[in-house]
Amino acid sequence: MLIDAASLYFRAFYAVPETVTAPDGRPVNAIRGFLDMSASLIDRRRPSRWVACLDLDWRPAFRVELVPTYKAHRVAPAGGEDVPDLLAPQVPLLLETLAALGLATAGADGFEADDVLATLAHRDTDPVEVVTGDRDMLALATERVTVLYTGKGIAKLEAMGPAEVRAKYGVPAEHYADFAVLRGDPSDGLPGVAGVGEKTAAALVSRFGAVEDIVAAARTGDTGFPAGAAAKVRAALDYLAAAPAAVRGRLDVPVGALDDRIPAEPRDPERLVALVDELGIDGPVERMLAAMRAAAG
């Protein structure tokens, strides 16, 4: 099980009231929510291995160079990512808690969690479940990789394989990124091709496949193009030359070997006890330990 960590702790932060605090008054709603959601996932899905994938660079320079509007709307006035003031201090404490529990985390300088998820899912040989609220990750779905989409919440996970992606969006999962490039995605600052909506994008991807093949067909005047779409594609050639590499998850992220087995007992019990006392997270930690023991067999 590969967790899109930021996706889950942002969801936890907004799902659990900010009034949930540590004994000293600090907010711990994201920590408690993340642990409870993760415990629920482990308990329900029973993975033997688990990794929280991190955004060590939430807006990589290589993506901004390709698409300057990429996540531009999320930049804080002072620079950096616009993260709620009450969430930012919780993230290091959450990572400390995961380390004390013995649960693996993975990230790489210059890359987003999306890239780490894509690399780890691609290089593994076991069945993989990717937990995320980012629809771009639907491109990872294969017969071996299932995307557990959290858009409707952890209690209503959508298990998305190739058949489910095609049924919902009308495109092959391996070309979901091409579909997103054409359609655009405001949440990532991706403009899309002017005048090309979801239906036209799905039709083009279903017929021609990758953006590069769509562009080639538009240039040659292939008769299979919907009326008027070829001109719209030709008007966006510069964008279409750059955007695919910005949207597709990287498969070459330098993530070393991981001890990602779910342990039956915490790796650092003393540190875990100290964190539980400091943060007042005894309930979530107990639930996580119970789930870990069940998963570890």
Rank of each mutant, 00 (worst) to 15 (best):
G161P: 08
A39H: 01
L93M: 12
R45D: 11
Y239Q: 10
A274V: 05
D252A: 13
G133R: 06
E265T: 15
M160H: 09
P17A: 11
G79F: 08
D282H: 14
L95I: 00
A6H: 11
K168S: 15
G33M: 10
R45Y: 08
V128H: 09
A236D: 05
A6V: 00
K156Y: 07
V253T: 14
G197V: 00
G192S: 12
S38F: 06
L101W: 04
A72G: 05
V273L: 08
W58D: 07
T97V: 13
R63A: 07
T119L: 09
A5D: 07
A163E: 15
L41R: 00
G189Q: 14
A296D: 13
R261Q: 08
I42E: 00
A121R: 00
E129H: 05
G195P: 12
V285K: 14
E174P: 09
A216F: 04
A242P: 05
A264P: 02
T132Q: 02
D43L: 03
A22N: 10
R248Q: 12
S48M: 01
V131C: 11
D260E: 07
A216C: 05
A218I: 04
A39Q: 06
H73T: 13
A216D: 08
V193L: 12
V28E: 12
P77E: 13
E278V: 01
E198V: 03
P254H: 08
D124S: 14
D268K: 05
G79I: 06
M292N: 10
V247K: 07
A274R: 15
A294K: 15
A177L: 07
S206R: 14
Y70R: 15
G151S: 08
A99N: 13
R44D: 13
F62P: 00
D24M: 09
Q90E: 07
V16C: 06
P77M: 09
A39N: 06
A210R: 11
A52L: 03
L190A: 06
A159H: 13
P254I: 07
G209L: 03
A236T: 01
G102E: 04
V196K: 09
I3N: 03
C53R: 02
V131N: 00
A173M: 10
L86R: 15
P92M: 05
F179I: 03
T105D: 06
R271V: 07
V253S: 12
